[in-house]
Design a protein around this nucleic acid. Structure first.
Lengths: 241, 241
DNA sequence: CCTCGAAAGTTAACAGTGTTAGCAATTGCT
DNA sequence: AGCAATTGCTAACACTGTTAACTTTCGAGG
């Protein structure tokens, strides 16, 4: 069942299969970008690749699985973009790095609105958030970039969590702490993380989804001020650059 | 062309038509709620009503128009719910009334996640925001409830807009002021309105769309604290009740 | 009251979708 | 070389939105 190399699937056949998998995703994405989410269809992808729709079932179990794989790859790309933006300021503190990552999130979303919509505009609570899914893991890889920066910011000691939080309630945040590489982050600090993530997501989503069109043609200053507020909540000391 | 009553379309025929229009929308909504957005289809609605799909074209120009009409009616229902929540505190100040309306927004969204998704999770910037659409007007009726309360809050004189706003940038907010019943609201105050709307929308959307499931099973305290922050930005003096 | 015309709803059909079953051919490993 | 897994195909089914043409219903005006 395997080549002479070892326990891996085969070696050669496996490679061209990976290429086909990637090509399916890339043409699917091109359709998404150029013609909207409704156009990323099995038949359209197959047509674009010079084959027929049932052939795609050799690669993905169906339309749902294909979309989920596309979602996962987009999460990974977004995570890589955030990490790259962070690493573009190697000598800066975590505050400035987080600012760069947040700006990159907005820029990526504005540059790829359709992809952003696929990732963050869920019609239902569908299978995306289900653990075990590849999209779920990729989602955590994405969120982890921001979360890591927040943890590094917390280590600076300048973060000041709100008072009066109910410990019985913050206990549910313990699950998030599991993902934090054995850092003993206090739960009320994690509360601040979640609150800031909410605010960041909300600001970007409301702009990308066009819910600000009625008021603003240039929402960037609004975003920058919101970002200042977020970083202030996280105890970032550096002034705005 | 008209009955003896006056200039209105007909009188009788017109009434049963209105009933049919309403029934189409209500069964469409039931399908949305019970089976998800993908199930609200022309043929399914017709089937449910005991007729065939092409018959629906006597009432709506197509699937798109039907969805848009449904969207519009949901906006109206949401606006009515917010107004009712506001009027449940007739003797309270605008701060408490706004708090009640914001809470009602969250409650409505949680009680009707599919409807909320139809209203606020737009895949593209589609025809919804286009002026002239019924959904566009209804959207304004919804937003107007919150906006009016913010204006009343502003009249209290306790709101303190941020300093350092670029007047050349806030100028674009003048268009919003048009909708404000000839109130001479300063532009930097309108900036606060928009920022608060963004924050409110973001908090509710992030919860309803399930983007907090990874961290929180009970996001209400987070919402309440965010609401406190929003009302503080708007200068509401009353403490939390 | 009776007729006429507009409105409502029908069937048939076209193009498109996801999906399954069954078959042919290519291709790589033993 | 031959075997077997993989790949891709065609045909088909059930579903979608949409249009065209036809029939029925029913309200209003003479």
């Amino acid at each position: 069942m395997s080549s002479s190399a070892g326990t891996r699937p085969t070696g050669r056949r496996h490679r061209v299969r990976e290429e086909a998998l990637a090509e399916i995703l890339s043409t699917g994405r091109r359709l998404l970008v150029e013609e909207g989410p409704g156009a990323v269809t099995l038949r359209a992808i197959a047509r674009e690749m010079g084959m027929t729709a049932p052939g795609l079932y050799r690669y993905y179990a169906g339309h749902r699985d294909l979309i989920q794989a596309l979602t996962s790859s987009l999460y990974d790309e977004l995570a890589a973009a955030l990490a790259a933006a962070r690493d573009r300021h190697p000598d800066a503190g975590p505050g400035e790095q987080l600012r760069a990552a947040c700006r990159e999130l907005r820029h990526w979303a504005l540059a790829h609105p359709r992809e952003f919509g696929l990732l963050f505009a869920k019609p239902d609570a569908d299978a995306d958030t289900t653990p075990g899914t590849a999209a779920h893991d990729s989602g955590w890889r994405f969120g982890g970039v921001l979360l890591d920066l927040m943890v590094r910011l917390w280590r600076e000691g300048t973060i000041r969590p709100p008072t009066g939080l109910d410990p019985a309630w913050t206990a549910q945040l313990a699950e998030v702490r599991e993902h934090l590489a054995d850092e003993p982050v206090p739960l009320d600090v994690i509360y601040v993380f979640v609150a800031c993530w909410t605010r960041l997501y909300g600001t970007v989503a409301v702009e990308v989804f066009g819910h600000l069109d009625f008021a603003l043609t240039d929402p960037e200053p609004l975003f920058e001020r919101t970002l200042d507020g977020i970083l202030a909540d996280l105890g970032a000391r550096d002034a705005r650059p």
